[in-house]
Amino acid sequence: MTDASSPLRRPSLPRETALRVRMRRSGELAVKILSNPTTIFGFVIILLMLSMALFAPWLTTPNAPDPYQMPRDWGALRMPPGTPNHPLGTTNTGGDVLYGIIWGSRTSLQLSIIVVSVTVVIGTAIGSIAGMVGGKIDEILMRIVDVFLSIPELIFALAIAAILGPSFTNIILSLCLVFWVKYARIMRAQIILVKQNDYVDAARIMGDSRLNIYFRDILPNAATPVIVQATLDMGAIVLIGATLSFIGLAESGIAEWGVLVSEGQAGIASGRWWASTFPGLMIFLWALAFNLVGDGLRDALDPRTEGR
């Protein structure tokens, strides 16, 4: 009875279910993504930023009536870091730098989440139509994409925002109009690649509908590069958004990192470094964190290393 291979002695396995197997696979994937130290570093930064945005009303007293406007302390203009009530100093106009950083994280999060989700949806839809339908429609859509791609993102967004007039909402709008193009390109290429797999033909032969084939076979196998690109863009969009507001395309006085850097830069020559440096550091950390996580995702989701 000590023979382990005897069928009588085989240990009874826990009852497998599809849900359990899928959850285990997601768990394995999470472990794989987090096995890279730089990815963990990026994740930690992102988590800190997120909690900062989440707890902003408790970390500082919200400015009334609009908490996204910088509070002005007219009695404490241009104070250096370490001043009582203003641990990171104040700006030319008496804005508290710490307040700007904390509420600026909300602004940045808003910007990147709105822009990324809108552009991913638009880009995926247009890329999918082009890749699935093909022919003339594909040709027309891709020529439109080419036109968009021939203009640098920043310049294009700048032009649109300038036409719409300076406001933070218009920055979001202009970025949405510019950033979907990349996703459409990636999605179309992926779909054309995935469509060639025999499992798509197998599904057609068993008589499944085109919509089912798209959602069950094609989209899940085509989505990975878009997910990676979206993660990288979460950082890139804050960078470009900050650039646009630095140039002056957002309302002045708004708690936004790019605006803060812009307002503080006049004082740098006279030694008041803090008003620009701290928000600048935040922009840097935000972009870095999403880049690290995006790279980690790309490695972990690489189809060549992923179990096929």
Binding site: A18, N197, D198, Y199, D201, A202, I205, N221, R308
Partner: peptide
């Protein structure tokens, strides 16, 4: 459709890698 099925040469490519056997 029900009565005519196909088995392909490349079994890697003919089974969706994200689906369970069931």
């Amino acid at each position: 459709r029900r009565n005519c099925q196909m088995v392909f040469q490349d079994s890697f490519s003919s089974l969706n890698p994200r689906h369970l056997v069931i």
